[in-house]
Computed example of a mutant assay.
Amino acid sequence: MTDEVNAPDATHEARQDVRMLDTSALKALAHPLRVRIYDILSQFGPQTASSLAEMTGESSGATSYHLRALAKHDLIREVDDRGTARERWWERPRGGISFTNPEAMKTPSGKAATQAVMTEFLNRRHQQLMRYLSETILDPEGHEDEAAISTATARMTVEQTVELISGIQKLIDAAVDKYRDQTGEGVRPISIRTDIFPLPEEGH
């Protein structure tokens, strides 16, 4: 699994800008609040410890501590030429990352850290989706036409599945590259998520 700013996906391993997290970085990220902070920086851009405290309901001391822990492993970085010594701004570096490092998965601690990170990350995405459902789609004055939430099942070979993933990924990459830095009236962060995987057998 990989994550790119505003676009988590499952096929970026072949791209040159993807960083595969090692065991130490995965362990540093494997904390619910750190995953949340990291994801907020990915989705909403640079923040301070104070703004993150408001967004997470934690103290600024706690968010500051976790920001430093993430920065220690180059998961985030301080924004150049912005802020003061008392109010530092932090950002998520551009480029994709892979949470599934084959080497890390060979050790119990690396596997546990990977599972913790992926679980927290996907739980957060699911919570955001459910919040959207409750606040927008189920609202009589909601704007359901601004989202696409659908599922489908097809019977495909591995090669056909890879071809489908590649085609979808090209569309996502094009949109992210085109609109990543867009600003202006009406512009807001959009989550782009794809889930393509072989179905496990029922009852297992």
Rank of each mutant, 00 (worst) to 15 (best):
T23E: 15
S24G: 01
S24T: 14
S24F: 04
S24I: 08
A25Y: 02
L26Y: 05
L26T: 02
L26E: 06
K27L: 11
K27Q: 15
A28V: 03
A28Y: 08
A28E: 09
A28G: 07
L29S: 03
A30F: 02
A30W: 01
H31V: 02
H31T: 03
P32S: 13
P32N: 11
P32A: 11
P32H: 09
P32Q: 11
L33K: 12
L33Q: 14
L33H: 13
L33F: 10
R34N: 13
V35Y: 04
V35M: 10
V35D: 06
R36M: 06
R36Y: 08
R36I: 00
I37H: 08
I37R: 05
I37G: 06
I37Y: 08
I37Q: 06
I37D: 09
Y38K: 01
Y38Q: 04
Y38C: 03
Y38V: 00
D39E: 10
D39P: 00
D39H: 09
D39R: 08
D39L: 12
D39K: 02
I40C: 10
L41A: 07
L41P: 04
L41I: 02
S42N: 14
S42F: 01
S42H: 11
S42W: 03
Q43E: 12
Q43I: 04
Q43T: 08
F44N: 13
F44Q: 14
F44V: 09
F44L: 12
G45H: 07
G45L: 06
G45R: 05
P46L: 10
P46C: 11
P46V: 09
Q47S: 10
Q47K: 10
Q47L: 00
Q47A: 13
Q47T: 00
Q47C: 08
T48V: 08
A49K: 07
A49T: 05
A49E: 10
S50I: 06
S51K: 13
S51C: 05
S51Y: 06
L52E: 07
L52M: 06
L52D: 08
L52K: 05
L52S: 07
L52W: 06
A53M: 03
A53G: 05
E54S: 12
E54A: 13
E54L: 11
M55P: 00
M55G: 05
T56P: 01
T56M: 02
T56S: 03
G57L: 08
G57E: 11
G57Q: 09
E58S: 14
E58R: 12
E58P: 00
E58L: 00
S59T: 15
S59P: 02
S60I: 00
S60V: 00
S60A: 14
S60L: 01
S60D: 14
G61R: 13
G61C: 02
G61Y: 13
G61L: 11
G61N: 15
